[in-house]
């Protein structure tokens, strides 16, 4: 019994416990985000035919453009994976390069999305046009908002690692970030399927 207590107090195990705890909490947070997107998908499913005389998905979605956008995001997930490999090998330079590429790809994705939104608004198909467009802008926009938060987070993390090196805290946060980024990727695959592919079919 005493050994048990001694082992519990040792610093290493405490640190490990801490990381596990944070990981677990973050997974829970991702589940809440999952519910959030599920509700937005459900709203979209209910409203996607309510175009009120305005255009439907088939008339406004430019599929080749969306495909390029999708590939950018998928590739950024791949480079994020490379970054995690670099963390495990403790290669700081490779890590920073991989993070920079991830950031660039994410930014390119976000810019393309915003450009698409601008295009729609200029054509007179803004979110006030119909319930379908309201739900479309909100669902895709919420994903875009998450990507924006991710980019801010990534920039902060990159700066911390650049300045302080690969400390325990930074490694932990990188793990969380990579979970977040892959999660957004999965959500995008659902958006691509449900909104775009099913929208034009």
């Amino acid at each position: 019994m005493n050994n048990e207590a001694v082992a519990l107090n040792s610093a290493e195990i405490l640190e490990q416990e801490n990381t596990n705890k944070t990981m677990f909490g973050f997974w829970l947070y991702l589940m809440t985000d999952c519910v959030l997107f599920a509700v937005l998908f459900a709203t979209y499913a209910v409203l996607h035919k309510n175009t009120f005389g305005g255009p439907g998905g088939a008339e406004i979605f430019n599929m080749p453009y969306i495909l390029v956008e999708t590939m950018l995001l998928l590739t950024s997930s791949f480079t994020c994976g490379l970054a995690m490999l670099a963390v495990h090998k403790k290669q700081r330079k490779a890590l920073l390069i991989a993070l920079a590429i991830t950031f660039g790809l994410g930014l390119a994705f976000l810019s393309m999305e915003l450009f698409e939104f601008r295009h729609l608004v200029v054509e007179g198909n803004s979110w006030t046009r119909s319930a379908f467009l309201s739900s479309y802008f909100t669902l895709v926009g919420t994903h875009g908002l998450h990507i924006t938060v991710g980019l801010f987070w990534l920039a902060t993390l990159g700066y911390q690692i650049f300045k302080n090196g690969l400390k325990q805290h930074a490694v932990k946060r990188l793990g969380l970030f990579s979970l977040f980024w892959h999660f957004l990727d999965i959500i995008w695959i659902f958006i691509f399927t449900v909104v775009y592919l099913m929208g034009v079919s």
């Binding site: 709203t43 409203l47 309510n50 009120f52 006030t128 046009r129 119909s130 319930a131 309201s134």
Partner: peptide, 10 residues
């Protein structure tokens, strides 16, 4: 927007 309005398909 028009999620819950009674017009525009909400």
């Amino acid at each position: 927007m028009h999620f819950f309005t009674s017009t525009f398909g909400g």
